[in-house]
Design a protein around this nucleic acid. Structure first.
Lengths: 312, 312
DNA sequence: CCTTATTATGCTCGAACTGAGTATAATAAG
DNA sequence: CTTATTATACTCAGTTCGAGCATAATAAGG
C-alpha cells in the first residue's frame, strides 16, 4: 500500500497534503531465473518515503535498497510517476505521489536473508512466459474469457476483440513480448485480475491465475518488465544482471528469461559477437554436460565508444 | 529496513515540506517549424502546481494547458520526475518535485494570443539543427572549447574527449541526433552553458550561443526533444503534429524539423507507404511550385491493427 | 510555344541484416 | 564406444536499407 505515514496529528493545511514514495522494481536473473524483490510475503514491492535527508530521488532509492540488499545497484532507471486518486484507498484529502524505479542487480543476495524475498516474476504473470511455447492458460482461460467480455457489449465488440487479439497474439497475430502492461491493463479492464474485482466490489467475475499484489504494485511490476523487455533490444543492459564472466549460453538464458521467449542460438551468438559486446576471458567454463564453453566478459568500453544496440 | 507503515514517526514531520509541480514541453510543428510553448518571454516552460482539485497528474496538466492554448492535446507522455535539491535555488528545507510531460499538438494557436509564445526550439539549442549540414558553431566554438576543457585535467582527458566526440560526432563518429540531453549535459559539465555558470557563481568561463531558460527548464526541454527524436522512429507520433490532410513532403519536413536532419526523399516515401501509415484522400494539393502532390491522411486504424513502427 | 526550375513519383541495385537451417567439434555418462 | 549434450562454424535465401537514376507534372519567364 502506498500509505507511508502514520497517525496524522498535524492541523489541517493544504501544503502538507502531498507526500512522495519511492517504489522499486528490483530485478535479478540468477542462472536464468527472472526474479523481483518483494516484501510482505511476495505481495508488495519494496517502497519507502522520499525524505529530506535524501540528496535526490535516485540516491534516496539507492540508500535504502543498498541497505536492504547489501550491494550497489548496477543500473537504475525511472519508470513512472503516478498520483491518481482512485489508485489508493486513502481519504481524498491526502495525495501520495509514487515515483517508481527499475533497478538491475548482479548477484542474488541469498544468504543475507533480506526482509524481502526474491520471487520469480512469472508467478505474477503466468501468461507472460513463452519460453516453452504459449502457456496453456492463454488458450484455455484467457482467450475465451476475453471473447466473452467482448460479447458483453455489442457496440464495443469489434474494438475489444482487436485489442485482445493484438495483446495476446491470437487471430494470426504474433506474440509481442513487450506488451506486458497492455495485457495486464486489458485483463484489468475485463475484470479478470483480482485488483479489478477489488476496485469495484460488486462484480462477481473471478480472477485468472497469477499472484496478486497490494495496491497497484502489480501494474508497476508490469511496467517494469515491459520496459526491460523493450530496453534489452537496444541497450546492453542485460550485462548488469550477469556475473563478471559468463558463457554465451548463460547470457542467452538471461535474455530469454527476461523476454519470456526463446531465441535462435547461433544467431544470438552472431549478434553479440559482431557487435563486440563481449570479449573472451581466455578461460573455459567448468561446465555441466557437453563441450566446454569459452568464458566471456562484457566489454565496458562499448559504453563510451558508441551508442550500441543491445541483444536480439 | 523499509518504512512503509505508520509506526515510525520520524518521517512524518519531514514529508510535509513537499509540493509538486507539473511542467509541460508542448511541441508543435506548423509548416516544418519545430516550436515549443514558452512563457515569460521565452525563458520558461509552462508549469503549474499539482493541486488537490486535479483528478490525476495527466488531467491536471491537461486542465491548464487547454486553458492556455484552447485546444486539446493530441498526445501526452510523461517525461521525467526530478527533485534534486541543487537543481533549484529554493531554500534547502523545502522540496519541490517536478513532474514533466511531453505534449504534441496539432494546430498553432496563433491568433488566440496565449499568455505564452511559441519559439523555434533551435533558438535554445543552435547546435542541434543539422538540416543544412552541421552548424558552424560546432566546429568553430564547441569542439575547440570542449577539447580545451578536456585538457584541463590530464587524468580525465581521454574519457572527456571520447564523450565529447561521441556526443558531437567528431573524430570520425557520426552525428546521432537523439543525444540531445547528453550534449546539453556535457556542455553543462564543461561550464559552457549559462546555467552552469549560474550554478557555481565564480567560474569565469562564458557560455556558448543559445538562449537560456529559468532553472533547469532547458534541461527538461532537451529531455523532451531527445525523447521525441527517439520516438518518431518507432511510433507514429508525428501525425499528432500534422493537419488532417497533408502531402508526403510536408510530413517529411515535419520529421526533419524534429530530428534536425534531412532524410532521403524516395526512401522516406517508401517507408511510409509500405507500412500503410497513410491513405490517399483523393485530393491533390494546391501547391507551391512543381508538380501537384497527392494529399494523404493518417490511417488511424494502424493504431489498433498492430504495433507499428514510426518514420525513418 | 519553349525552356527552366521545382516538386512528385516510380524504379533499380548492391550492401547489410535476419531467420532458419546444416555441419562439425568437444565433452560427460553409460 | 555409443549416446546425449552443448559449443561453434558456416550457408543461404529473403528482407531491409542507403543511394541513386529516370520520368512526370506543374509554374514562371522568355
Amino acid at each position: 500500500m502506498l500509505k507511508t505515514s502514520g497517525a496524522d496529528t498535524e492541523g489541517a493545511a493544504e501544503r502538507r497534503a502531498i507526500s512522495a514514495d519511492l517504489i522499486a522494481v528490483l530485478v535479478a536473473a540468477p542462472n536464468g531465473n527472472p526474479v523481483v524483490l518483494t516484501v510482505k510475503d511476495g505481495t508488495t514491492l519494496p517502497s519507502g518515503p522520499f525524505a529530506l535527508g535524501h540528496r535526490s530521488l535516485q540516491s534516496g532509492l539507492r540508500d535504502w535498497v543498498e541497505q536492504q540488499t547489501g550491494h550497489p545497484l548496477g543500473y537504475i532507471e525511472q519508470l513512472y510517476t503516478f498520483a491518481d486518486r482512485d489508485r489508493s484507498m486513502e481519504e481524498a484529502a491526502r495525495r501520495v505521489i509514487s515515483i517508481s524505479y527499475l533497478g538491475l542487480t548482479r548477484e542474488e543476495p541469498s544468504h543475507r536473508t533480506p526482509p524481502g524475498s526474491w520471487r520469480n516474476w512469472y508467478e505474477f504473470f503466468p501468461w507472460e512466459d513463452h519460453r516453452a511455447g504459449a502457456p496453456a492458460i492463454i488458450d484455455d482461460i484467457i482467450v475465451p474469457r476475453l471473447c466473452q467480455w467482448a460479447d458483453e457489449q455489442q457496440d464495443k465488440r469489434q474494438n475489444r476483440l482487436r485489442r485482445a487479439a493484438s495483446a495476446f497474439g491470437f487471430d494470426d497475430r504474433h506474440w509481442n513480448e513487450e506488451l506486458v502492461l497492455q495485457r495486464y491493463e486489458l485483463l484489468f479492464e475485463a475484470g479478470m485480475v483480482e485488483e479489478a474485482v477489488r476496485a469495484k466490489a460488486g462484480t462477481g467475475s473471478s480472477a485468472v491465475p497469477g499472484r496478486t499484489m497490494t495496491g497497484d504494485h502489480r501494474r508497476i511490476l508490469a511496467t517494469g518488465i515491459g520496459r526491460l523487455r523493450t530496453k534489452i533490444k537496444y541497450r546492453p543492459v542485460v550485462f548488469e544482471l550477469m556475473p563478471p564472466a559468463f558463457t554465451l549460453l548463460q547470457l542467452q538464458r538471461a535474455v530469454e528469461a527476461l523476454a519470456g521467449v526463446t531465441v535462435h542460438k547461433q544467431n544470438f551468438r552472431r549478434l553479440i559477437e559482431q557487435q563486440d559486446l563481449v570479449e573472451e576471458t581466455g578461460e573455459m567454463s567448468a561446465d555441466t554436460g557437453g563441450r566446454p564453453a569459452k568464458l566471456f566478459r562484457f566489454r565496458h568500453a562499448v559504453l563510451d565508444e558508441r551508442q550500441v544496440a543491445g541483444t536480439k
